Structures are given as structure tokens and as C-alpha cells.
Simulated scan of single mutants.
Amino acid sequence: MEHWTRIDHSITVQEAVDFVQSPASGGIVTFTGTVRNQTQQRPVLKLFFECYEPMALLEMDKIVQAAKEKWPVQRMAILHVKGEKLPGEVVVVIAVAAAHRAAAFEACQFAIDTLKETVPIWKKEFFEDGEVWVAAHP
């Protein structure tokens, strides 16, 4: 299975889809995470993402390998941002291609859930009255 993991200042859904797409794929499933404009009824001005990049990429690769062992996935991309992002901007994209849709859906769900649990990425939320560091993926 081919795969691509990346942490960068800018990511797009289209680049992930372009990577996983192939004539053999009967289904491509994507998950796109964006910055919400509020947290617990507090307006969010922006987020700042930070990570320990070598370990984050290693953990993202482990997610891909685990998905490969569980489902007949053909290609997979996991992309996450670092740096400052405003409400509405994309912060994480997962794209999975498989011959059949069920495997693509299940692998995509697994990937985002596992990423939130295991990948060392943190975010700082900025509000009008201050800011706070929180686990981006508790």
C-alpha cells in the first residue's frame, strides 16, 4: 500500500485525494477537520498547532500500517497542520482509497480516532480574554 504522511503549514483536501486516487479504487473516503469558531460557547479567534514532528510522523506512519493490517486499503494520506490557523481553515485531512467503500470508511474512521489518541500534537486556543494550551488530540 502506498501512503503519505505530512505535517506542514498548509494542507488541502485535494492534494490528499489526488495522492490516493487510482483506477483500482472503487471508493475514496476523506475526513477533513477544521477550526471551529467557538469552544464551550467562547468565541475562538485562532488556534496555534505545535508538535514534536519526528514522533508525530512516526505515529502517523504506525496508523497507516495498522490500517493496512485491518483493511484492504490501497492508498492512504494523513496530513496535519502546524502553526496558526483561523476559524474555518483546514487542520487535518485523512484520505483513504480502497476497492470497496466499506474498507475505506472503516480505515478512515480508525485513522482519525487513533490520530487523536496517539499523535503528539498540541494546540493553543486564542480567545478575546486570553489563551490556553490544550491537547489537540486528547
Rank of each mutant, 00 (worst) to 15 (best):
P43D: 15
P43H: 12
P43Y: 07
P43K: 15
P43Q: 14
P43A: 15
P43S: 15
P43F: 09
V44S: 08
V44E: 12
V44P: 08
L45C: 08
L45N: 12
L45G: 09
L45S: 12
L45M: 12
L45F: 03
K46M: 10
L47T: 09
L47K: 12
L47R: 11
F48T: 15
F48D: 07
F48V: 14
F49E: 04
F49L: 08
F49T: 04
E50L: 07
E50H: 02
E50I: 10
E50N: 09
C51Y: 06
C51H: 05
C51R: 03
Y52M: 01
Y52F: 14
E53S: 11
E53N: 07
E53D: 07
P54K: 06
P54N: 03
P54V: 05
P54F: 06
M55P: 04
M55A: 02
A56M: 04
A56I: 04
A56W: 05
A56N: 02
L57F: 01
L57N: 03
L57S: 02
L58I: 08
L58A: 14
E59C: 09
E59R: 10
E59H: 10
E59M: 13
E59D: 03
E59I: 02
E59K: 12
M60I: 08
M60G: 06
M60F: 08
M60R: 09
M60T: 06
M60H: 06
D61R: 14
D61V: 07
D61H: 11
D61G: 11
K62N: 13
K62W: 11
I63K: 06
I63F: 13
I63S: 07
I63C: 03
I63E: 09
V64Y: 09
V64A: 14
Q65H: 15
Q65V: 15
Q65S: 13
Q65D: 14
Q65N: 14
Q65P: 06
A66L: 13
A66F: 05
A66R: 12
A66T: 10
A67T: 03
A67L: 02
A67I: 00
A67H: 01
K68T: 15
K68G: 12
K68C: 09
K68D: 15
K68M: 12
K68Y: 08
E69Q: 11
E69W: 01
E69M: 09
E69P: 00
E69R: 10
K70Y: 01
K70I: 00
K70W: 00
K70F: 00
K70T: 08
W71A: 00
W71S: 01
P72Q: 03
P72Y: 04
V73H: 00
V73K: 01
V73A: 02
Q74H: 10
Q74S: 07
Q74R: 08
Q74E: 13
Q74I: 05
R75F: 06
R75W: 02
R75D: 07
R75Y: 02
R75H: 15
R75N: 13
R75V: 03
R75L: 05
M76W: 05
M76N: 00
M76T: 00
M76C: 04
M76E: 02
M76R: 02
A77E: 11
I78K: 02
I78L: 13
I78H: 04
I78S: 03
